[in-house]
Nucleic acid binder design. Sequence first.
DNA 1: ACCTGAACACCGTTCAAGT
DNA 2: ACCTGAACACCGTTCAAGT
Lengths: 190, 190
Amino acid sequence: MQLHKRDVVAAATSLLDAYGMADLTMRRLARELAVSPGALYWHFANKQQLLGAVADHLLPGFDDVTGSWHERIAALCHRLRDALLSHTDGAELVSASFAAGQSAAMDHLLTVLGAAAVEAGVGSGNAELAARTVVYYVLGFTADEQSRLQWDAAGADVTQPVWTENPTARFTFGLQLLVDGIAAHSRTRS
Amino acid sequence: MQLHKRDVVAAATSLLDAYGMADLTMRRLARELAVSPGALYWHFANKQQLLGAVADHLLPGFDDVTGSWHERIAALCHRLRDALLSHTDGAELVSASFAAGQSAAMDHLLTVLGAAAVEAGVGSGNAELAARTVVYYVLGFTADEQSRLQWDAAGADVTQPVWTENPTARFTFGLQLLVDGIAAHSRTRS
DNA sequence: ACCTGAACACCGTTCAAGT
DNA sequence: ACCTGAACACCGTTCAAGT
């Protein structure tokens, strides 16, 4: 039976969920699919491209978000965080794919966030940067949160400092900081 | 002649500068130092710890920064960015070490930034998060900037989009956004 | 105390050759 | 067009044994 891109991505996703990024290797994935490692390179140019496809598979849509510009930013960020937290090492995977420019979904999110920033009154030359700043925050915060979560789940019973409590409330606070910053720049032209 | 931690870190730094993170391997480093790979494990528990030491070696001090809280934040962030840009893959290395909790220098920066946030009037429970948000921004922005810089330098003559011009001005703009956000939270208690 | 030698258990990627 | 088999050139880490 023929191997399709979507089968590879599905198998990679379940490997990720079960064992994490360190065990998401081309060889292990090939073994899981009962093909030779080389077979994957017929469908994907390299590992980065495959990881980008996995990232896009686990990310949600970002188009059906409505409301004022700051409501949209908040909703988009919570949606991104939720998706990342739903998969083992999700934040790490998406961060890497975003940095490598291999995630179409993240590029699209940037566009949608940029539009919200423009609506907030940020000059169009700076809107993309405002959008990127928001993305850096969500990825950084969530990667941090997730590594602590997974560390705890792995049985490390070290008592965490106060600041790891109420992660959602803390996430919202940091987000509000960015939204306020964008609002303060409403009168910035570019 | 005995191998010392500082020799290992120095050799690792020059390997990094010359060939980048992908070639900064334990085996290659051992070869450069004319020792066996196992020798490195007498001085460092693992690769992450060694990379953390390299990160701390290339980072500057963060204590002699004066001025108002927003001047201090700006100065600290510019100093961090400058250090990252001074070494091949500097942003990537420090990001990884920070995420892995292996950089004492970054932990210290967090403290200093947190103090500035407290002085800005952010509740002490949220100051650390404000500090982290600033760090996520600097690391994210600079990693992005540096990967484009290094790509160009490697001879890719693709015309970059408008938004890659004036990186320092763009960096300052994004930073201002965060500073404004922190200022807006001056009356937040925690 | 500090290091070697050699092994263990892997990697990503390429490519001639097969079907 | 799609895949196998086998190779190429590596990895990080461990550990008995040496000095």
